Amino acid sequence: MNNHGAQKLAGKIAVVTGGSSGIGLATAKRFVEEGAHVVITGRREKELKEAAAFIKTNVTAVVGDVSRLEDLDRLYAVVKEKHGHIDILFANAGAGTVAPLEVATEAHFDQTFDVNVKGTFFTVQKALPLFKDGGSIIVTSSVTNVLGTPGFSAYAASKAAVRNFVRAWTMELKDRQIRVNCVSPGPTETGALQKTAGLTADQAKQAAAEYALQIPMGRWGKPEEIAAAVVFLASDESSFITGIDLPVDGGLAQV
């Protein structure tokens, strides 16, 4: 809970994609604690309902896949009907599976780019008519946007693409005083490694422990630690910050 006096996002309307788990869920919960009303979306209805129950208050859940434009239209129709406008958008939905170059399939490539690149592009485009001038857009990239990560080349390239969207959109939206930034998590304890990488629980645990040795802080990040950075970028605390990539990675890509 925020114990530092006034809530940072009092009365704001926020939309979070990929809001049913991990970083999206942790951030949506923080947004509500900071006084915002949040609309979360995600593909999995059961998990999305559980996420809304976990957040408890000031939350609306809309099932949808960001790579399907009709789902985005439905999401924003709900936002418009319920709230009339948007102040904060956290375009966070992402997909990533391990696929070495030699064996990667077209389906792997297409899914990665459909969700991470096309999905992010149209999530932001379709939000604009509802956006209040002076709002804040935050996109989830990844420290892989600057690292060579074997087995993750399509994913890393997709995250470099959204980092560049942030640069262009900063310029395109500056006359509306809409700030656009990205946050780049390092390895984060979201359960995604086990779910999407096709590893057994033991393999995932071992891989995580090995990866932690490469991180200067010696551990993985927690979703709440990424959420704190997103709250900063969403709030007036970052009023003179736009176009940046804020790594929250325990130093992984910094040294």
Rank of each mutant, 00 (worst) to 15 (best):
N3E: 10
A6N: 10
K12W: 00
K12L: 07
V16E: 04
T17M: 03
G19S: 11
S20T: 12
G24D: 09
T27L: 12
A28H: 07
V32Y: 01
V32S: 00
E33C: 13
E45D: 14
K46G: 09
K46S: 14
K49M: 15
E50Q: 13
F54T: 15
K56A: 15
N58T: 10
N58K: 11
T60W: 00
T60C: 13
A61E: 04
V62S: 12
V62L: 12
S67D: 01
D73V: 14
V78G: 13
I86D: 11
D87I: 09
I88Q: 02
L89E: 06
A91F: 02
A93S: 11
A95Y: 12
G96N: 08
A99I: 02
A99D: 01
V103T: 15
A104F: 10
E106I: 12
E106R: 13
D114I: 03
V117A: 04
F122Y: 14
T123K: 06
T123G: 07
T123P: 10
V124F: 02
Q125I: 03
K126E: 12
V139T: 10
T140S: 09
S142K: 04
V143H: 00
N145H: 13
G148L: 15
G148K: 08
G148W: 00
T149S: 04
P150F: 15
P150L: 15
Y155R: 04
A157C: 08
A161C: 07
V162G: 01
T170Q: 09
L173M: 12
K174N: 14
D175E: 15
R179A: 09
V180L: 11
C182L: 14
G186D: 01
G186Q: 04
P187M: 04
P187G: 10
G191M: 08
A192F: 06
Q194G: 08
Q194E: 10
K195V: 15
A197D: 03
A204E: 01
G218P: 03
R219C: 13
G221F: 01
E225F: 04
I226W: 04
A228K: 13
V230H: 03
F232D: 06
L233P: 00
D236N: 13
D236G: 12
S238W: 09
S238K: 04
T242F: 13
G243R: 05
